[in-house]
Nucleic acid binder design. Sequence first.
DNA 1: TTTT
DNA 2: TTTT
Lengths: 168, 168, 168, 168
Amino acid sequence: MARGINKVTLIGNLGSDPEVRQIPSGQTVANFTLATSDSYKDNSGTMQERTEWHRIVVWGRLAEICGQYLKKGRQVYLEGRIQTRSWDDQKTGEKKYATDIVCNEMQMLGGQGGSGGGSYGDAGQQQGSTPAQPQARPQQNDQAAPPATSQPPSGPMIENNDKDDLPF
Amino acid sequence: MARGINKVTLIGNLGSDPEVRQIPSGQTVANFTLATSDSYKDNSGTMQERTEWHRIVVWGRLAEICGQYLKKGRQVYLEGRIQTRSWDDQKTGEKKYATDIVCNEMQMLGGQGGSGGGSYGDAGQQQGSTPAQPQARPQQNDQAAPPATSQPPSGPMIENNDKDDLPF
Amino acid sequence: MARGINKVTLIGNLGSDPEVRQIPSGQTVANFTLATSDSYKDNSGTMQERTEWHRIVVWGRLAEICGQYLKKGRQVYLEGRIQTRSWDDQKTGEKKYATDIVCNEMQMLGGQGGSGGGSYGDAGQQQGSTPAQPQARPQQNDQAAPPATSQPPSGPMIENNDKDDLPF
Amino acid sequence: MARGINKVTLIGNLGSDPEVRQIPSGQTVANFTLATSDSYKDNSGTMQERTEWHRIVVWGRLAEICGQYLKKGRQVYLEGRIQTRSWDDQKTGEKKYATDIVCNEMQMLGGQGGSGGGSYGDAGQQQGSTPAQPQARPQQNDQAAPPATSQPPSGPMIENNDKDDLPF
DNA sequence: TTTT
DNA sequence: TTTT
């Protein structure tokens, strides 16, 4: 019996429209980035703003909802878990890492062209009863050569290549 | 005025003793890894366990407490925020990323050689009123030659070697 | 479409063994109390401890698990939502209120006669996709007269009578 | 050393303008109610909406900010802890209970006549380092005759009358 | 790349 | 009524 808690709560704004795809197995996956900002006083006492960018991954029905209702700039509340993937970079032969937030609950906030708010959660995708979730990441940057098909075709270790070797 | 929430809640076990250091400014920083496990049913319906490793960074008084009381294997509850750092790898010329959890509350759980439990939080390090936090270990790899040391080279079942240029 | 978040995270110790019952509909419900303690400095600067008692309600499969594994004194992690019930007190004719935590995730911590830890969540009982949960509360105090049957037989407004008209 | 976690996360709308007062000690306290709504499927499979009302208490600088910026209807994100007070009702001689959320972080969301959003937290009022917080409005009902005033007599869809001796 |  |  496993034990552990791995939960993330975010409120921020989408940095891009969600990219929604079907993976070969038929599962729907959505990817987008989310910016969370916070303020703090620096050593000289002046307020500073710090923005953190998160890579969001959403599966199943909730992915479809994100694709339908979320747009760049939209403010949302998200819950999920942290997941770090690693792969061997073909070019340099180095091991690379990327950390995603696998989202299992989403709620639209505020205005921003939104038709009001809405709350969505997944039934049965939380900790302790999660269907196997194939690893996925957006391919938007895998332009050039080896298009690596369209998806996470290699299980937990995702081979990533070319140009851009990580985040957004 | 910034707006946003970036919160993480973890319960897991330390993969290594905390490494506590003073940075030039005099600030204390502690680093350790934490494993969170959860169970899920795979597509064939059999239970699977999945372990996620998190890089934890703690500042100030709480870092000292972690250094004093936490040991490899200890079960803890942590709260913090996600923070992704990036740097240019001197060797390959590539941009690299690492995601840390900057912890601002810690609570010891269960036994494990512990003197019982205890709850510790930082006074004034939460969102919205955070003292400027110098980036921890951000440049350690920016030198040409692999400084190697200075980071968590250990932990159960985690092999660390020259190949790896990032996490644990 | 509803919008809102109502989440509670607790780590504490059971003040009593869980009381597990079946309600007429066949649903299983468990009730117990949980103490959460925290320290703070009072105005004179001395540390004080403050204990808060929570009334926990658990439904379905998770209720059965609580009944099986949890005992008075056990340390647990719980997640749930706040729910306040009200009813008219028969004796005084006044409106009464009681606030429960409806738990949808539980994790055993530490020792206390426990066989280690374990993590349990409900599949599909979280916000946004919750099966109708009949209101329930422990009857342990409804000794005397009108035994009020054995359970929440009156929908959302629970009639409560006699002697003790509220919490534990 | 105390151990325990008692945290609440809410997103909802204010049911009333905050009522801000100074208590004799000079501390500022703000009170308001917050509605959180969520949807669920009832036994017949139809979607139902459920609204939960929370009594919010805020102290110090954050109370002043709430008084300045929050208005009835405003959508906010709140964090805090659960606190149940009890007192002896003079009229009936019974023990009464009320559960509040003591808020230590607030963030305005969405529009609603708001000047945008903002994030506010208390520096040093979280678990583990909390200044002694006097109980707010604990005795207001302890007088023989219903003082009535002094408390949230309003809010959307909330009828408040002499019958009620507690919450909103 | 977002937002205030 | 719990726990340290």
